[in-house]
C-alpha cells in the first residue's frame, strides 16, 4: 500500500519543535527567512523521499491559499 501523509501529531513535544522553528528565523530579514524556509522544505522533502507523501503535503499546503 502506498504511504500516505500522516495527519496526527508526529512530535513528542510539539511546542519544542515550534519554538526551535521560530528560533531558527531569529534576526533574519523577510527575504532571508523565505530562503531559509525554502531550504528547509527541500531538506525535509528529501528526508521523506516518498513522492506520494510529498504530493499529498503539497496539495494540503496549497489548499485554501
Amino acid at each position: 500500500m502506498a504511504q500516505t501523509l500522516r495527519n496526527d501529531s508526529g512530535f513528542a513535544d510539539p511546542d519544542e519543535v515550534y519554538a526551535a522553528l521560530i528560533e531558527c528565523h531569529q534576526g533574519l530579514s523577510e527575504e532571508q527567512s523565505a530562503r531559509v524556509n525554502a531550504r528547509l522544505v527541500l531538506l525535509l522533502a528529501n528526508h521523506i523521499g516518498n513522492f506520494h507523501v510529498i504530493s499529498e503535503a503539497l496539495a494540503a499546503a496549497r489548499e485554501g491559499i
Binding site: 495527519n7 489548499e63 485554501g64
Partner: peptide
Amino acid sequence: SLAAAHPFARRL
C-alpha cells in the same frame, strides 16, 4: 489555518 483540517497542527 491548518488546524481545522489537520489534527497535528492543533497541537502546535
